[in-house]
């Protein structure tokens, strides 16, 4: 349990834990050959994508609730700016494309390049990370989605 008035002990504990964890982490790190960017993009890992979604997208988005951004369940195959009870930017309301793997990839890479004037500024620079997040979103969309 957290004891707010024992910061010194907590910091000391953190340092000890760091030292104890550093050695086995270094010794046990597997050697992995990274897949090519194209292969990685084609085969996103939805499990890793869920972790990325929670940590990168979760400040503003949820699957089932409109927050800073619209809800994401069934985003695949959905027309842009089509969640009925979410207030989109004028820039997005003017567009007519449908969300699929390709449009989501371009959106996550640079939203302002795909839709100038959008209020979403968050970018995911790694193609693998984008592929994983997209795989997660596909898993939470209707099976018939593209």
């Amino acid at each position: 349990m957290w004891r707010p008035h024992s910061c010194g002990a907590a910091v000391a504990g953190m340092v000890v834990a760091l030292l104890l964890q550093a050695i086995p982490a270094a010794a046990q790190s597997p050697v992995r050959t990274p897949p090519s960017a194209a292969a990685a993009a084609a085969a996103g890992d939805a499990t890793r994508g869920e972790q990325l979604y929670q940590s990168r997208c979760g400040a503003c988005h949820s699957l089932d609730a409109n927050r800073v951004g619209p809800r994401h369940r069934n985003v695949f195959g959905r027309r842009v700016a089509a969640v009925p009870d979410f207030h989109y930017s004028a820039a997005l309301r003017k567009r007519t494309f449908t969300w699929d793997a390709a449009t989501l990839d371009r959106w996550l890479e640079n939203p302002g390049a795909l839709v100038p004037g959008t209020t979403m500024g968050f970018r995911v620079s790694s193609a693998q990370d984008r592929a994983d997040i997209i795989a997660y979103l596909r898993d939470h969309s209707a099976p018939s989605s593209p």
């Binding site: 997208c57 400040a59 970018r123």
Partner: peptide, 10 residues
């Protein structure tokens, strides 16, 4: 955690 990532990502 999400907010930290959000600010860095924008």
């Amino acid at each position: 955690r999400g907010a930290a990532n959000a600010y860095l990502g924008l």
